[in-house]
Design a protein around this nucleic acid. Structure first.
Lengths: 242, 242
DNA sequence: GCAAAAGTGTTCGTAATACACCCATGT
DNA sequence: ACATGGGTGTATTACGAACACTTTTGC
């Protein structure tokens, strides 16, 4: 990559407006074709992928920074965000190796500093996302979680920690943010199965979801399926927030 | 307080060696006389209390910084530490009010900057702690959790979030770090009751603890009690780490 | 001997698990 | 008609909750 004038300006801007040594890394989860996906970015002029991320402006909260970064990559106004871990080791990955991969000349830059990263995960509706690269990347797209390649930095590790946090959350509350407004029970079951990594019994799952009291059946059914048309459901917002 | 030359030197040292805008706040839990306690510091020349905290040196990991700070306040070499939340709002508390309380002249200092704080809680053995004030404080002592006064900064809020995190942890695993090496079942029960905030049934508790397989009964009993001498138990390290 | 805490088993209700059949629809 | 997935009930088991009496010991 040619680290030209615009890049240098970007760096300068970050250095002036943002908090040094600190960054946000985001694991954006989507669910599509019965697979958990994460949104990754391809570094300009390379075939190397990484997580979306960014810096925290001195005038915005950490949550706002995370929201801004995620909004920019997804085109979404609202998204479910969860802080899950701070990655604070002095040496988080082999810096030389990474700089080589992205053709960065270390000596010429201040990038060789350590960075403490606050990890957020986002749960978004896959179909609503408009993947948008940022200043340093030229491609942004979904990757199935189990096909994610070796990433830059320690981003494979961050994805792992995020996935564990997501599983833990699933035990506490049904996850509504990865599905569209209305969905079928089997679709919800596939989602849970995918996150947990093992199959579930349809009858027990149905009972459990009904017993949770957070779902309501709509009058419509999912049309266009090859077989019996399943009912559509949606989460009852009022109850879960009361 | 007289913010004199040593204080200014301290500030200079922090500014040079540590990461700006970022700090550690620690909620150190102890258990004594059937009460959960937290370790608080009294600001020099005032009657205002706050949590132990500190800054992250550029050469140490965030975990190491937290460990260092907690070790300094407790005199302990080993302690159980858990990162639980990042407090990242731009305005976390009424700065003017706090500066007034600690007699700090804002204009003269760089302290008016925002600070992002990484919250850690520590579980320690109450009796082993040697409470030790730091550079800015002149007293360090235990406070029962339910008698904690209004604290400086947003530290009451941080304690609340830490307590919730501690409760969540208790559901997953028995908490061994707040008790001495050997203890009685009723003592362990009081601890659980205190953390959860409600009484537990002694018979069910006993059964559950025995079923967990992480406890072993010692041959000795607790002597010097006014009534029937209870057996001593200890956690079996080997199993819990296998 | 009596007050106070320790130690223990049984019953019950609820929640999770396992399992099988009928229904609706597109081909 | 048939293949495919949707929708539901019942029986079993495991787990947590409720509950009472005997034992020990210091006073």
């Amino acid at each position: 990559m040619d680290y030209n004038q615009p890049t240098k300006n970007f760096q300068k801007e970050v250095a002036e407006q943002c908090i040094r040594y600190l960054s946000i890394d985001g694991v954006i989860f989507g669910f599509h074709q019965n697979q958990l996906n994460v949104l990754l970015l391809r570094w300009k002029g390379t075939n190397e992928w990484c997580l979306p991320g960014g810096f925290i402006r001195k005038t915005e909260s950490v949550d706002e920074a995370a929201e801004r970064v995620m909004q920019e990559r997804t085109g979404l106004n609202e998204l479910f965000l969860q802080q899950f871990h701070v990655f604070g080791a002095v040496v988080r990955y082999d810096q030389d190796a990474v700089w080589r991969k992205i053709n960065l000349n270390v000596d010429a830059d201040s990038w060789s500093e350590r960075t403490i990263s606050i990890g957020y995960y986002a749960l978004v509706e896959h179909s609503k996302v408009v993947p948008t690269p940022d200043f340093l990347t030229e491609e942004c797209r979904w990757w199935p979680l189990d096909e994610v390649p070796g990433l830059l930095f320690d981003h494979n590790h961050i994805i792992e920690v995020a996935t564990r946090a997501l599983r833990r959350q699933l035990n506490d509350q049904p996850i509504s943010h990865l599905l569209p407004e209305s969905f079928t029970i089997p679709e919800l079951q596939r989602l849970h199965e995918t996150i947990l990594g093992h199959p579930l019994d349809a009858r027990n799952f149905y009972k459990k979801m009904m017993a949770s009291g957070t779902l309501e059946r709509l009058t419509e059914r999912r049309a266009g399926t090859p077989h019996k048309a399943p009912y559509l459901y949606r989460f009852t917002r009022s109850e879960s927030q009361a």
